[in-house]
Amino acid sequence: MPRPKTLSDEDVLASALEVLASRGTSFTLSEVAEHVGLSRATLIQRFGDRDAILLRMAQHEVALTRTWLDSLPVETGPDALWRFLETIVLSMGAGEGFSVRVAIAALEIENSALRVLAGQRYALVQEAIAARLPDTPERAETAAHLHTVIAGASMQWVASDGTTGLSDFILKRLRWAIEHLVHAP
């Protein structure tokens, strides 16, 4: 009879993310095993190799993103759109731990399966933005561009002087884009 799991898969994946944050993209299964308090063999038995854990982490993130976005109210109009975008951006925090997001993006570039899951996550966000825009032929394209502003501003923040927190930095650029692009004639 197999032993009962003392840690859920979600706990293990969260711990793997912590190791990724501290060790970077070169983290090992042994480091994850030590961090979570399981043997390397147990990790391999439950998840497979390091790439399989990365894939499960990405799949879990897509599911969490879907659940979170589905929990938010769907309202339209300029004020509702801004509240929604602000909610998304504020969830990113002031920048603490953002290096993990950059590390994950680097892995997504290298691994086609991770890249597909990143695309799914981005599509969920863009669909959620589009649902809050007026029903026009440009709705999907406008949502994609607003999401691009968020993603691009986050990378600009990485190269900034660091005096402004991540969310504030992004919101400033997003506000400008909405005022000048979304409401443009």
Rank of each mutant, 00 (worst) to 15 (best):
L146F: 01
I129E: 07
T136M: 01
T87A: 13
T42Q: 12
T136P: 01
L90A: 01
Q120I: 00
G119P: 01
I88R: 12
V116P: 03
G37Q: 07
L124E: 06
I44Q: 14
S99C: 06
T76H: 08
A52G: 02
G77S: 07
E75M: 11
V32Q: 06
R115A: 09
G162R: 04
I53L: 08
R83F: 11
Q126M: 05
S112D: 12
A128S: 15
Q156D: 15
Q156N: 11
F84C: 11
T76N: 12
V100Q: 13
S167Q: 14
A106Y: 08
E127D: 15
E127P: 00
E108A: 07
V36I: 10
T67R: 14
R121A: 13
I104N: 03
R139E: 05
G77K: 06
A131V: 07
T163Q: 13
S91L: 10
V158N: 04
A106C: 09
H35G: 00
T42D: 08
E108C: 13
E127I: 04
L43F: 11
T163M: 09
A113F: 06
I44K: 10
S167V: 02
V102N: 01
L54C: 10
L133R: 01
P73E: 06
V89K: 05
L72Y: 00
V74M: 07
N111C: 08
G165R: 10
E141Q: 14
A113Y: 06
L107R: 02
P137Y: 04
